[in-house]
Nucleic acid binder design. Structure first.
Lengths: 240, 240
DNA sequence: CGGCCCCTTGAACTACATCAACGGGGGTGG
DNA sequence: CCACCCCCGTTGATGTAGTTCAAGGGGCCG
């Protein structure tokens, strides 16, 4: 049942019938293991299948001429990593494995069949893309107009809720397997500054981060500092 | 024929049949005029119809507690301004008219009908959302990792190509009716700094900007400075 | 004619980047 | 099994891109 993670993700949005569930299971024709650091998709590719994440963390990223890197999205289990490649055709960015991962493979042919015969599922997949876009917008806001501290706090709030939604939290703790350099590329900050901001968050008693585990130790205040409003995640189940 | 602008936009992506064209015309049940500065949609709204732009410029924006504003998207004629509200339901941001505008109104019921009966059109609408997301990602990259000059240059490249695609350019010139303060909110910069960057772009002979008209006077170099690659706009017509 | 916007300029400030260096831990090769 | 080395986190010092504050002038609208 490789599609279990995906189904759980889509169920955040709306109820899914047994028939739809079965179709998704069939659409995920196989699994693939990806090593840490490996690219799942490269800029310029024209994939013929889309991937959803079953275990692990992946990042979408862009490289600049100067060698700088910006991570534009972090994905967690259940996320459809490059669903848009079905419609967009040519990749304008790469997707790399932050950790060792397993992904489910859905051929574009299967997505096309769903789009031809399954309006409700198609809407949920569209919503998936729309929520990704909403998260992108939120990142634009936080990079553009918030301080490094607020921005970092905001990302921890977001990751906590997204991981909680797929059952990957324990109380206020969750696995967060990025290095500080990767976090810098996510936030648009230098590694050095990320390090100092993290020290500040720890000193203020807002989070702890040991090994790969982050614990939010003062959720109300972290949320307040970040000016965090979860609306953009569309985490409420309703008819779509 | 209020849907003409929308049809032209969708034709950037793929061919559209006459039947599809007619359906879109029927879906746009009426037009609406919006005054400059007015909100088309407000944060927290649960719209029952989506709007596409026929004439004018609009911006999606978010306000922070501190009163700061970040514009997360600029829309030009043909763009579907809040198509995603059909799927997302609750708006996490506002949409304001930068100039006086006319918009076409498409009830969500009509979108639902399309999603139930018109797979190909549904895919094109999904692509519309996906391209918005791709633009968002590009903005994340430019805000996060490019200098103010590069970032500003990038935006002008993007706006030029998007306006060209809907026939709203003349040579390298186009209407760009933002104030410098609005451009600052778009780029995540202060008004003062925007002013200085513009002077630099002008001094380098890259653009002119008088009144509401921008002319790109050195497209190759502007593109090079911006590290601009148009792939993210998906401006090639192909079967989807 | 008066009052806003909007653009522009100057000066001071600061958040973050950059450069450089070090220590610890874990994996790899000899 | 040990040695090495590379990655990762950390710290200090210095540099700078962009912010903030303040003010003036021009054009347009009421």
């Amino acid at each position: 049942m490789p599609a279990a993670a995906l189904i759980r993700k889509l169920e955040q949005f709306d109820r899914i019938s047994d028939a739809e569930r079965q179709l998704l299971e069939q659409a995920a024709v196989r699994q693939r293991a990806v090593a840490k650091g490996e690219d799942l998709v490269r800029e310029g590719d024209r994939p013929s299948e889309s991937l959803f994440l079953i275990t692990g963390f992946v990042a979408r990223y862009n490289l600049l001429r100067t060698g700088k890197r910006q991570i534009t999205a972090l994905h967690v289990p259940g996320d459809f990593v490059d669903l848009h490649s079905f419609l967009v055709k040519k990749m304008d960015h790469g997707v790399m494995a932050i950790t060792a991962c397993t992904v489910g493979v859905v051929p574009h042919d299967a997505l096309r069949l769903i789009s031809e015969t399954q309006p409700h599922l198609t809407r949920l997949l569209g919503l998936n893309i729309a929520v990704d876009a909403a998260i992108h917008r939120q990142w634009i806001v936080t990079i553009g107009r918030q301080s490094a501290l607020e921005h970092t706090a905001h990302l921890f709030c977001e990751m906590f809720l997204r991981l909680q939604a797929v059952g990957l939290t324990e109380d206020y703790g969750f696995k967060f397997p990025l290095t500080q350099a990767e976090l810098g590329d996510t936030l648009g900050l230098s590694t050095v500054h990320v390090n100092r901001i993290l020290q500040e968050l720890r000193a203020e008693g807002l989070i702890t981060w040991r090994g790969e585990t982050v614990v939010i130790t003062d959720w109300p205040r972290l949320q307040q500092i970040a000016d965090f409003d979860p609306t953009f995640l569309s985490l409420e189940q309703e008819p779509r």
